[in-house]
């Protein structure tokens, strides 16, 4: 996002006097989305809206809100869209559950596959792949072209 009046992210005049509170503000800023940008946190964004949000976060922190209260305040005002890390709720259930399920499912499939393979291992014949008619013909051609080692020289 390159606006006509580019402003740097986190302006010097925004920084809070208390370094502990400022660090909290920075951490919170990284989890909040600048809603007019593409996938940027307000900590990184240069958009004026991001600046407003950064100031808002610092205002709430200065007013004595806890991190959770600040987040709740922003969600109440701007909706879930403002969170870069979606909260766990019925709508995001699958989002959070699918990755671990994929790992567990993959592991389980491997286990089943391994068991089935080892069980059928004895039954399976280990003969090499069969040649197609084309390849059989080619093989015969090649063998015919090769001078036979014990033939007359």
């Amino acid at each position: 996002m390159v606006g006509s009046s580019a402003v740097c992210a986190v302006q010097p005049d925004e920084i809070m006097a208390d370094p502990v509170k400022e660090a909290r503000a920075r951490d919170l800023s990284r989890e909040l989305r600048c809603m007019v940008c593409q996938n940027q946190s307000i900590d990184d964004s240069e958009a004026p809206l991001a600046r407003d949000l950064r100031l808002l976060v610092r205002e709430r922190i200065a007013a004595g809100d806890s991190d959770a209260q600040v987040i709740d305040f922003l969600v109440a005002r701007y909706g879930e869209f403002v969170l870069l890390k979606p909260r766990f709720n019925p709508h995001t259930l699958m989002l959070w559950l699918l990755p671990p399920l994929a790992l567990a499912g993959g592991g389980f499939a491997l286990w089943i596959y391994g068991r089935r393979r080892s069980r059928s291992a004895s039954a399976e014949d280990q003969s090499p792949a069969k040649l197609s008619a084309d390849e059989q013909a080619r093989l015969e051609r090649l063998m015919a072209a090769e001078p036979s080692p014990d033939g007359p020289v």
């Binding site: 989890e31 946190s41 870069l84 979606p86 699918l98 990755p99």
Partner: peptide, 29 residues
């Protein structure tokens, strides 16, 4: 699985918006 995680994180917001109209963000955190 890592690939699936990235896939889900990238496409879930799109799917959710199309299905329910809810807008969520899935970002770095």
């Amino acid at each position: 699985t890592a690939c699936a995680t990235v896939f889900i994180g990238t496409l879930y917001p799109l799917a959710l918006e199309v299905l329910t109209g809810d807008k969520i963000s899935v970002g770095a955190p």
